[in-house]
Computed example of a mutant assay.
Amino acid sequence: MAEVEKSGRIRTATAFLLTGLLWGSAWIAEGRLRDAVPDCYAGPIPGISLEAARYGIAAAALGLLALRDLGSRISQKAILWAAMLGVVQLGVPFVLAAWSGSGVAPGISIVSFALMPLFALLISGGNGEGEIPLAVAGVGGVTLLGATSLNLSWHAWPMFLALLAAVLLGAVGLLGLRRLRVHGLIQSGQWAQFCAIQSGTACLFLLLASFIFHSADAAPCTLQRASALPLVALALPVTAVTLPLLFLLAGRMEAWQIATLEWLTTLVAVLESHGLLKIRPSWLEGLGAAILAGCIVRVVSIDESSATPVPSYLK
Rank of each mutant, 00 (worst) to 15 (best):
A26I: 04
A26C: 07
A26K: 01
A26H: 01
W27P: 03
W27M: 13
W27N: 06
W27V: 07
W27C: 09
W27L: 10
I28C: 12
A29F: 15
A29M: 10
A29N: 07
A29Y: 06
E30R: 10
E30L: 15
G31K: 11
G31Y: 05
G31T: 06
G31R: 09
R32N: 15
R32I: 07
R32D: 07
R32Q: 13
R32C: 03
R32P: 00
R32M: 13
L33M: 14
R34F: 13
R34N: 14
D35R: 15
D35S: 15
A36W: 05
A36G: 03
A36V: 14
A36D: 14
V37Y: 00
V37Q: 02
P38S: 08
P38W: 07
P38Q: 11
D39P: 01
C40L: 10
C40N: 09
Y41E: 05
Y41V: 04
Y41M: 08
Y41C: 07
A42P: 02
A42K: 14
A42L: 15
P44L: 09
P44M: 09
I45N: 07
I45Q: 08
I45C: 08
P46E: 12
P46D: 11
P46M: 10
P46G: 10
P46C: 12
P46I: 06
G47R: 10
G47T: 08
G47A: 10
I48Y: 08
I48N: 06
I48S: 04
S49K: 12
S49V: 09
S49D: 13
S49R: 12
S49F: 08
S49H: 14
L50K: 01
L50T: 02
L50C: 01
L50G: 00
E51A: 13
E51Y: 08
E51I: 12
A52N: 10
A52Q: 09
A52L: 07
A52M: 06
A53T: 03
A53D: 07
A53S: 12
A53Q: 11
Y55Q: 08
Y55N: 14
G56Y: 02
G56N: 10
G56P: 10
G56T: 05
G56E: 08
G56A: 06
G56L: 00
I57D: 01
I57N: 01
I57H: 01
I57R: 00
A58C: 12
A58S: 15
A58N: 00
A58M: 11
A59H: 00
A59Y: 04
A60G: 01
A60I: 14
A60S: 14
A60F: 13
A61R: 00
A61I: 14
A61V: 15
L62W: 02
L62T: 02
L62V: 02
G63H: 01
G63D: 00
L64P: 07
L64T: 12
L65K: 02
L65I: 11
L65M: 14
L65C: 14
